[in-house]
Nucleic acid binder design. Structure first.
Lengths: 119, 119
DNA sequence: CACACATATAATTATATGCTTATATATTAA
DNA sequence: TTAATATATAAGCATATAATTATATGTGTG
């Protein structure tokens, strides 16, 4: 019996290129790296990236459209998280190994008293 | 003594995003996938991708600029290959694992009698 | 309900990207 | 040296992208 490599899923060149293009943006790559650590809501991203709220929303939208992230409303907030059931999830996890941890960004939110999401 | 993971090199978020953006193009991703198999010259790429020669040259230029590929003149041809000494090489290799082999493209060149590079 | 807060969408704008055509450069062969 | 072939670069154009502002929608609270 051949053992399947659980860290590998072969994808289309075209689909893969689309994912790479999507993650080929500093803001979005940081976002997924953060989401690999913890879930996070829109207004927290706005604080972290010092960027307009619509801009953040649009970045998240693009990632949601390709199924990389998912959203969940929690009261007045919308909390985003990595979609671990995506066919691209393994690729994304692999990519993130090559990028430094973004945990500090959550620490910064805590310090500033801007952390929203409750655990 | 801590054993270093030879398949992992942690990079800047910004640099990584640039690499992903570069490879977030169907043509360029196919190109590096081909180069991971064998070296290849410009005119062969032109045949494979059915695209103008300047367009191919420009794609290769971008990848050369980031150090992902390197070139070597062989007579009237310029042969491109993966730059295995690039700081991005490990990331690129990892990415390519998630993409199907492009060996068939070389087979197609052979069949059509368009294979140039000599081994 | 009215208001505040959080988020999404639409419209606009500036810039980046990818392709084409035209042209320049480099190499080989007659 | 001239012609043919291979490649690179420049300029122009059409489309894509990422940001902004303005506005709409959704939710909690008095």
């Amino acid at each position: 019996m051949i053992k399947e490599d659980k860290s590998l899923k072969v994808l289309d060149v075209k689909d893969t290129a689309n994912i790479l293009k999507l993650l080929g943006d500093k803001t979005r790559l940081s976002m997924v790296s953060m989401l690999a650590e913890q879930e996070c809501c829109v207004c927290e991203f706005v604080e972290i990236f010092q960027m307009s709220q619509p801009s953040i929303s649009q970045h998240l939208r693009k990632m949601k459209d390709l199924g990389i992230v998912k959203e969940q409303r929690k009261g007045q907030w919308v909390v985003y998280s990595l979609n671990t059931t995506s066919e691209y999830y393994l690729l994304v996890r692999e990519l993130l190994k090559h990028v430094p941890s973004q945990r500090e960004k959550f620490d910064w939110l805590e310090e500033k008293g801007l952390r929203i999401t409750c655990y």
